[in-house]
């Protein structure tokens, strides 16, 4: 806000106004290109089956109906999966933020003894993996298979996100922290009271990445979850989409009975399910947007 007022006080030249107009115009065109397909899917989910099948639905529902939504919402698996996804996303993101901040902070200090070694340790395991066999056995041995733990805990340190956060931490002027340390604050307190408040945009970014990552993750469930009550929403969606294909996810042709049943699962139902699985997580971003304001960091330092 303060920034906007300053800009207005400064006054815009004619050239700047042209720039502003052209820039916004181009962005709106790009934005529309990205919005329209989404609109089409939303329209399909509210349109009659025939209209969808014949490809008549564009950006407004044809033969408006809400039966598909009622159909999806009646499915008990949808609700239990929604519950799993919400719990996993909230607990996972919270835990991940704690561990990631704790890890990224020390590694952001150039004077950390053995820093290169530690960063290498982390980067290396981002690139190399031992494969599925030992991982599955490990998860089974520690009792993670068929529990929500497997969906939450192993994802609590994303190396990629950690490196991003480390990079943001590095840009904070060290002088501020040193003054805090002179006041006798421990490293944990410095992190909480000085570094984190100054990194809100970064924290919001990483938090968003984790939340979306947890929400969208169906691979972990695909491998480690067999019990229907622990299936996350995206796995449910995945199964719904695979169901309509002629081969299963391993490439085996499906039986006649399976295909026959899949014929009942129409595109409008799939669209409705996709909408219902996307919308909750898409609502997160607008709430985080207030942290993406220019000058926030410096303002908080001064304040």
């Amino acid at each position: 806000m303060a920034n906007k007022r300053k800009g207005a006080a400064f006054g815009l030249t004619a050239g700047e106004r042209v720039f502003e107009f052209v820039n916004t115009f181009i962005l709106i065109v790009i934005g529309l290109m990205m919005l329209l397909p989404f609109l089409q899917m939303a329209s399909k989910s509210f349109s009659g089956e025939t209209a969808v099948l014949t490809g008549n639905v564009w950006f407004w529902p044809v033969d408006f109906q809400t039966g598909t939504y009622k159909y999806v919402l009646r499915e008990s698996q949808f609700w239990s999966s929604l519950k799993v996804s919400v719990i996993v996303t909230i607990l996972g993101t919270a835990g991940a933020m704690i561990i990631t901040c704790l890890t990224a902070y020390p590694l952001s200090k150039t004077w950390l003894y053995g820093r290169k070694f530690f960063v290498f340790l982390f980067v290396f395991c981002m690139l190399f993996s031992g494969g599925m066999v030992p991982s599955y056995i490990l998860m089974k041995a520690i009792g993670f298979v068929n529990t929500m733990k497997v969906l939450i805990i192993p994802g609590m340190l994303g190396i990629y996100n950690m490196i991003l956060l480390k990079n943001f931490f590095e840009e904070i002027p060290e002088a501020l922290e040193e003054s805090a340390q002179l006041d006798g604050a421990g490293s944990l307190r410095t992190l909480i009271s000085i570094v984190l408040p100054m990194s809100l945009p970064a924290i919001a970014t990483i938090g968003l990445f984790y939340a979306v990552g947890y929400w969208d993750n169906y691979m972990t469930g695909l491998i480690y979850i067999q019990k229907p009550e622990y299936k996350p929403l995206q796995l449910y969606l995945y199964e719904l989409v695979v169901e309509t294909q002629h081969v299963d996810n391993a490439g085996n042709p499906k039986t006649m009975e399976a295909l026959e049943d899949a014929a009942l699962n129409t595109e409008s139902i799939r669209s409705a399910t996709i909408m219902l699985t996307c919308v909750p997580i898409m609502c997160v971003y607008p709430f985080l947007q207030k942290y993406f304001v220019k000058g926030l960091r410096v303002g908080s330092v001064k304040g």
């Binding site: 704790l102 890890t103 020390p106 200090k109 004077w111 053995g114 530690f118 490293s187």
Partner: peptide, 14 residues
């Protein structure tokens, strides 16, 4: 660095 190593423990364990 010692106090910072303490902070690294959870990540390293993970």
């Amino acid at each position: 660095s010692l106090p910072l190593y303490v902070l690294l423990i959870p990540g390293l364990l993970m």
